[in-house]
Each structure stands twice: as C-alpha cells, then as structure tokens.
Write a protein that binds this DNA or RNA. Sequence first.
DNA 1: TTGAAAGCGGTACCAA
DNA 2: TTGGTACCGCTTTCAA
Lengths: 337, 337
Amino acid sequence: MRFTIRDVAKKANVSVSTVSHALNSTRYVKEETREKILKIADELKYKPSTIAQGLRKKSLETVAVFVPNISSQFFSQILIGINEVALKNNYHIIMANTFFNSEEEEKTLENLKNQFIDGAILVSGNDNVACIKKLKMENFPFVLIARDIDPDIPSILIDNFKATRNIVDYLVTMGHKRIGYVTMNFSGRKTVEDRFLGYKEGLEENNIKYNPDDVLVVDEAMIDEMAVSYRHCKKFFNNKVPTAIITATDNIAAGLYVALKENGFRIPDDVSVVGFDNLPISRFLDPPLTTMKQPKKLMGYKGMEILLDLINKKKLPDPVIKLETKIIERDSVKQII
Amino acid sequence: MRFTIRDVAKKANVSVSTVSHALNSTRYVKEETREKILKIADELKYKPSTIAQGLRKKSLETVAVFVPNISSQFFSQILIGINEVALKNNYHIIMANTFFNSEEEEKTLENLKNQFIDGAILVSGNDNVACIKKLKMENFPFVLIARDIDPDIPSILIDNFKATRNIVDYLVTMGHKRIGYVTMNFSGRKTVEDRFLGYKEGLEENNIKYNPDDVLVVDEAMIDEMAVSYRHCKKFFNNKVPTAIITATDNIAAGLYVALKENGFRIPDDVSVVGFDNLPISRFLDPPLTTMKQPKKLMGYKGMEILLDLINKKKLPDPVIKLETKIIERDSVKQII
DNA sequence: TTGAAAGCGGTACCAA
DNA sequence: TTGGTACCGCTTTCAA
C-alpha cells in the first residue's frame, strides 16, 4: 500500500495542509515541524500522487507528439529535439505513431485532449485540414511541425518550394540539363507537393523542359520508405536515366541508390543524386549523399518551445516559423563539363 | 470552459450517478432517460476528464518506455512493436529518451512511478542493476527488453553469446581464419559483453588464436553510433585488416564500411563484414550487409504484452523469454577458398 | 429505476 | 504559525 498525505499528517500530528505546505514550500512552516514532516514523509516513502495533483492543477504536464513513423530518422531526430526541451521543463511526452493514418491520429488526439494532455505537436502526416481547423477553433494548444496548413496556425517549417528550386539551380550549375525527380505521392501533403512544384519551377527558370517520363511518383504508403522506394525505382530507372535525380527524401534516395546500382548505373558517374533532409545515415551511403538539410532537431526544439508558450498563454509574434535550409555537398553529384 | 458531469446531470434533471451509469453502461437506465442524457452530453460536447477517471480508477492506462536513443533503428523498431500492442489495448506510451544516462532514467522513472504510469519497459541502456533490483523489490510492474540482468525479472532477450559464436562459425565455414571484432565498450552491459564473449568462444572452438590487435573497443558514448564508429575505425583499420570483421551492431558496421572504403579496402573482396541487429537500413548499405537478425518488433510486441499481464496481475510462466535469431546472408561476406 | 453521498489524494482558501 | 475543509471531476456503494 502507498501512503497518502493524510497518513503523513496523522503520524506527524499536524494537519494535511501543513504537510502540503511543508513539502511544497508554499507557505512558512516552523523549522521544527517542517523537519519532522520531511522525516516522516521520508520514512513512509511518501510521494504525492501525480494524478491527484493533476486533478487539482488541471494539468499532468504532459504533451502528445504525433509522428507518422518513428522508424524514420527524420521523425526521430525531430523527437530528440522535442524531448530535450520537454525534459528541461519537466514535461512528459506521449508518443503516438500514426503510420499516416489520419483517423487514428484524430481518434487518439480526441481521446487525449480530455484533460490528459496540455497540448500536442503534430509532425508531418497527411494534411487532415478539417480536423486541424477544428482543433484551432477549440483553442486547444498545438503546433505543427513540417506541416503546412494555415498561416494562422503555429507551425515550424522550411520553405519546401524554394529548397527544391535551389537544388535544381545547384544541379544546373553543375552542368545538368536532364533532371529527374522521385517522390511519394502528395496525398494532400502540401510540403511534399511544394517540393515537387519547386522542382518544376526550377526547371522552367533554367529553361529545361519538364519531362513526365523523368519523374516517378510512388503511389504506395511509405512506411518502409527505403524498401518501397527501391522497389519502384528498380522498375522505373531500368535503362533510361536522366543525368541527375532529385528525391523528395533521403530515405527515398537510399532506395534509389540500390535500384540504380543493381540496374548497372554508377553514382555519380552515370547519374547524380540529390536527397532531401540530411538524415544522419546519408553520410554513410555510398557515395555519401548530397542533400538539402532540414534542421530537424531545431524544428523539434522550436516546436516544443512554442507549444509551451501556447500552453502558458504567452502570445506569439508570428505563428509560422520558417527555418533555414542548406545544401550539404557530398559525393553523389558529378560536375558535367 | 469545459462541462462536467454535473452540468450534464443538471441539464438532464437526473443525478450524476445516472449520468455516469448511462454513459458507461454500468447499470440499467431507462431507455428514455438514457437517450436524453446522451443527447445532452453530445450537445454540451461533454467528455469525461481522464485525470478524474484516473484518480478514481488509480490508473491512466499509461506506461513509460525508456530507450537510450530513438534515433537508432534498433530502438525505434522495438518501439513500433510496443506501440502496436499499446494501441490495441488503449494504452498510452510515455517516451523517455535516456541517452544511456542511468541517472536521468532513474530520476524520470521515480517521477513517473507516482501513480502516473502503470508500468514501464526499459529497453537496453546501461545495466543499472541496483536501481532495477529496487524496482523489483517495490513490486512495480516492469519488463526489460534487450537487457540481461536477473533471471527473475521479466525480460525479452536473445542469446547474445550464442549469436556471435554462430557468426564466427559461419565465417569459419566461409573459410575465414582471421576474424576481427568491433564493439562499443561494455560499460556494464551484459548483452554487449556476451556478444564479445561469444566471439572469443567462437574463435577458441575453431582453434583460432584470439588476437587483441584485431579487436576494437570503441571507448566513447555511442549516441551517433555510425559517426563514432566511423571515426574510430578509420584510425584503427588503416593497413592491417583481418579477412573478416564482426561488429556488435549494424550501425557500427555502417561506420566501419565507410572507414574501410576510405582506407582503400573493398568489401567483401578485401575484407568481409558481418553486422548484428538486421536493421532496415542494412539491406541498403553497399554491399548489403550480412547480419544477425534480432526480432525487434517482436521484442517490443512481447515486451508490452508481458507488461500488460504484469499490470493485470496475471502470472507469467517464465520471466525470461529468449527469442530466436538468425543470420541474414547478404553480400558483405566473401567465401575464401 | 434512480439518487445521495463518500471518497480517490491532493491544493489552497479562510479562519484562528 | 497552523488547522479545517471545500473542491478538482469522476465512480460506485448503499439506500430508496
């Protein structure tokens, strides 16, 4: 059996309020009584019940984080950032893995919102716009990471459009004129679509004709991203390859790498590849992958900070925060003379 | 403002107990009143407070999962298994990332134990034996995954010793006689040490003399495992290489791959490599890594199931569950004639 | 078929 | 300097 504050009070011959105050230093308690109370609490190994405290304070100091798939380093890196800030502020994190299932996400969130959590971070996932606007209406504290839905909703983002456009520019600088693209299907994800649009815009600005035959839109759930990418790329890039291929994520690039090699292409001699995300693994692919960095930990960091501000009713300057990206040059792109 | 059960009761002109019973179907309520209550609850968007329910039932249906580093696929795969079972049983997961910091782990756990969580899963991490035995004394429900501490503590494991011994046997079958080993330091982790001991035993049984010059014990925290491995391997395997190298994890192998290649060795032509874990990425390394599979999702799955049994006071047949491993043959090992 | 009220384990207001 | 107690929002026993 666990002891309660009443047990401590009885044993110390004081009232529960005195015990509470002594333990929380919320009002002055005579040194002598205080010590006595502390001693007894210690003897009984008394620990206040978090639930009871939560009921009074109407907070468990807990937030939920929704990610599509923790097995992807993109999400786990963001989680690490979130975790760091949470720890510092004595907040707990409920982890919800949605596998891109919006219904599941909505259901779990609905469930947790009932006082369990103070707020939520929704990382990526399908743009379940209706659900998210509803959240907003309810004034429930939440922030979006890597999810581009509404300029009025606190979001941590990069400029996906600009990022891929820059990649195209970069490749053009390196002499490439035929540039392919591999992406998961957009399925209502603006961030993913923006990358693709940036790609197209990049071509146009460089006077390269957009060629649908050079773009592969993988129409399959990207749970095991590398494997799915590999399977589709293997079929798609069998004899015709552009001189360079951009992928919507590093994980897709990893699958593409193997597919290309198995089909007899050398990277970057026969075909250059540029990824997106700069995952920790990307430097360990062969050849090390040139890629567009997203500041993943920072995104988590900022996201959690904003969420705490929201919970504490601080007002934010600007709901949408766009973070910097940059190209990390490694060895998967070849200069063409 | 949120509405409470009292608001619903008042508006429906019934008592709170009737509302509670109607909503939970815990006793018969006249159809007419029931419908009325449901309707009003719906109108007010009434949702019972999870904290209040938790206080009554003394459970928030929540468990904590401690992992050293979610960024490693080994842990995220286990988490996915845990998550699956949790979801099915309407349990929530508090995620705690320890970065192998036992103190942090202990502190957070101490904090959460106060009624917040019903139990915990401790994945890997340093063998903080004292702390864990204490948990056991307190009768707190918890299970260990990939952590080998005490035969009386519920644990999900593989036979690490046997696994590496089998790898050595395998390599010997493939004609190798000089076999190196790369590992993180044991720092009190029996699972890691066992792998090493299995390696040594394997050598002995095959009449190969153990050569300390062929083993690299990386004496640095393995937070960014691949990067750390790379750095150390690069220096260590500069001219002298065995014909085959076993690594304690696939992540270490990924770092080793790059180090070897940069030092001018071809895999597997100059040196064969065998990993451990069979992470999803391993198939996408170049060459695809031959490795010892640990059933990661299954470990999570089983771990969570056992934990739920523990929480529900079911008694377990045998606390320690050892799961099967097997060698996944890919292309990183060359047969030597 | 339903209601009153105790109680889960704390916090904090009002009094003394 | 401390105590009594209402209350957080629900569940559940006992009684009607």
